[in-house]
Amino acid sequence: MIRDSGFPTFMPVMNALQRLVAIQPDFGALPTIEIIEILQSWKESEFFDKLSQNLWLVSFPDPQLIPIDLHTRLPAHRICLCIPETACANKENQSRLKHFSSNGFRIVADNFVSSLELAWGDTKYFAMDAKAGLPFYAKSWTAKLSSGQHWAKNIPDTVVLEQALQSGFKILSGDYAFNPPVSNRSADSSARTRLLKLLGLVSRDADSSELEELFKQDPSLSFMLFKLVSSAAFAQTVRVSSFGQAITLLGRRQLQRWLQLLLYTRPEQNAGALNPLMTRAAFRASMMEGLCQKRGGNKDEQDAAFMVGMFSLLDKLFGSNLADVLQPLTLKDDILDALLQRTGQLGVLLHLVELSDRTNSAEVESALHRAEIDVGVFEECLVQAYGWVNQVCRDA
Rank of each mutant, 00 (worst) to 15 (best):
I2M: 06
S5P: 00
P12L: 04
P12A: 04
A16D: 11
I23K: 11
D26G: 02
D26N: 12
G28T: 02
E34P: 00
E34H: 10
L39M: 14
D49W: 07
L51E: 01
S52E: 10
N54L: 14
V58M: 09
F60T: 01
Q64L: 07
I66F: 12
I68R: 14
I68A: 06
D69G: 02
R73D: 00
R73E: 04
L74Q: 10
R78E: 03
R78P: 00
I79E: 08
L81N: 08
L81E: 09
I83R: 05
E85Y: 04
A89F: 04
N90S: 07
E92R: 09
R96Q: 11
R96F: 07
L97K: 07
L97E: 01
K98D: 01
S101Q: 15
N103V: 00
I107A: 03
I107R: 03
S115T: 01
L118M: 06
L118F: 08
A119T: 07
W120S: 09
W120G: 04
A127E: 03
D129I: 00
L134K: 05
P135R: 06
A143V: 02
L145D: 05
S147R: 07
G148S: 12
Q149C: 12
P156M: 09
D157S: 10
E162I: 00
Q166R: 14
Q166H: 14
S167I: 01
S167L: 06
L172F: 12
G174V: 05
D175M: 10
A177C: 11
P181K: 15
P181Q: 15
S183V: 00
D188W: 11
T193Q: 15
R194Y: 02
A206H: 05
D207C: 07
E210T: 10
L211D: 08
L211I: 07
P219R: 14
L221Q: 03
K227G: 03
L228S: 04
V229Q: 05
A233F: 09
A235F: 04
V238R: 08
R239Y: 05
A246D: 04
T248G: 06
L249H: 10
R253Q: 14
Q260L: 15
L263A: 09
L263I: 01
L263Y: 06
Y264F: 15
R266A: 01
N270D: 12
N270R: 15
N275L: 11
N275W: 06
P276H: 06
L277C: 09
A282F: 06
A282R: 02
F283V: 00
M288P: 12
C292R: 09
N298E: 05
K299D: 10
Q302N: 07
D303V: 03
A304H: 05
F306Y: 14
G309D: 04
M310Q: 12
M310S: 13
F311G: 03
S312C: 12
D315K: 08
S320R: 13
Q327L: 13
K332D: 10
D333S: 15
D337M: 08
L339T: 00
G347F: 11
V348G: 13
L349F: 03
E354I: 01
R358T: 01
T359S: 15
S361T: 06
V364Y: 05
R370C: 08
A371C: 08
D374H: 12
V375G: 03
G376Q: 06
G376A: 13
V377R: 07
F378V: 00
E380N: 11
E380R: 06
L382C: 14
L382G: 10
A385T: 03
W388I: 03
V389Y: 10
V392P: 05
A396D: 02
A396Q: 07
